[in-house]
Computed example of a mutant assay.
Amino acid sequence: MNQVHDWLQIHRGEAPLIISFPHTGTDLPAELEGQFVSPWLARRDADWHVHQLYDFVRALGATTVRTSISRSVIDVNRDPSGVSLYPGQNTTGLCPVTTFDDQPLYRDGLTPDEKEIERRTYTWFHPYHQALDAEIARLRARHAHIVVYDAHSIRSHIPHLFDGELPQFNIGTNSGTSCNPALQTAVEARCAASGFSNVLNGRFKGGWITRKHADPHGGVHSIQMELACRGYMDEPAVTAPDTWPTPYTDARAAALQAVLRQVMDDCLHFTSAHPFATSPHIPVRTV
Rank of each mutant, 00 (worst) to 15 (best):
L17G: 09
I18L: 11
T24H: 05
G25A: 13
D27N: 06
P29T: 06
E33F: 00
D45C: 12
V50P: 05
A62T: 07
T64H: 09
S68A: 08
S68W: 03
I69V: 12
I69E: 02
S70L: 08
D75N: 15
N77K: 04
R78N: 08
P80H: 07
G82L: 02
G82W: 01
P87H: 14
G93W: 04
G93D: 12
G93S: 14
L94Y: 01
L94A: 03
T98M: 02
F100N: 15
D101C: 06
G109A: 10
L110H: 07
L110A: 14
P112Q: 11
R120G: 12
Y122V: 11
T123G: 00
A134V: 01
H145S: 13
A151C: 15
H152I: 07
R155V: 11
P159G: 04
P167E: 04
P167F: 08
P167G: 03
T177Q: 07
S178R: 04
V187A: 02
R190Y: 00
C191R: 06
V199H: 04
R203C: 05
K205Q: 15
G207R: 14
T210R: 03
R211N: 13
K212F: 10
K212T: 13
P216T: 01
H217L: 15
G218L: 06
V220F: 06
M225Q: 15
R230S: 03
G231N: 07
M233Y: 04
T243R: 14
T243G: 07
T246C: 12
D250E: 15
V259L: 14
D265L: 03
D266G: 08
C267G: 05
L268G: 02
S272Y: 03
S272P: 01
P275W: 11
